[in-house]
């Protein structure tokens, strides 16, 4: 698949910026408004998927090769894990050890925003990896037959 027409590409290029910005908003404001790491990560992955639909399957893999995606994915999970472990320094596993701050401010709720950011990275990258693995490396053709030529 080589991607879609010029109109779709132009619009996708503009819209994707806003989608990624919106996903960042959902992640960062996760602790005071509805949202959080998981929804934000899903929106991020779907924004990249839009690029893939518009520009063809190879583009996202050029930007984020499989190996790098795997490392980022693990780093996101490890960050969350490290926050949970750091709770030990204040006495309990998973203890929210940072200052809680004033409610409804962006910098508040201790470790929650940090956890949200790590979960956002983890979910966004792993969902991206899942969707590319299912579409780019797709083998949905019978055995013995070559993959159909695409135009």
């Amino acid at each position: 698949m080589k991607g879609m027409s010029l109109i779709v590409r132009t619009i996708a290029r503009v819209v994707t910026t806003f989608i990624i910005l919106y996903s960042a908003y959902i992640v960062v404001y996760g602790h005071i408004t509805p949202g959080g790491g998981f929804p934000g990560g899903v929106i991020l992955a779907l924004g990249i998927m839009l690029l893939m639909l518009a520009f063809g399957k190879d583009l996202p893999l050029r930007k984020l090769p499989e190996g790098r995606a795997s490392v980022l994915d693990c780093l996101g999970a490890l960050g969350f894990w490290a926050i949970a472990l750091l709770g030990f320094t204040a006495g309990y596993f998973f203890l929210n050890f940072l200052g809680k701050g004033e409610p409804f401010r962006l910098v508040s709720a201790g470790t929650m925003p940090l956890s949200n950011i790590f979960i956002g990275i983890k979910v966004g990258v792993s969902l991206f990896a899942v969707l590319t693995a299912l579409s780019v490396y797709r083998r949905f053709y019978p055995p013995g037959e070559e993959p159909p030529e695409e135009d």
Binding site: S70, C74, L75
Partner: peptide, 12 residues
């Protein structure tokens, strides 16, 4: 925590 951390450290 130990096996979970190991699970994500190993691919790196």
């Amino acid at each position: 925590a130990i096996p979970l951390g190991a699970a994500f450290l190993i691919p790196i």
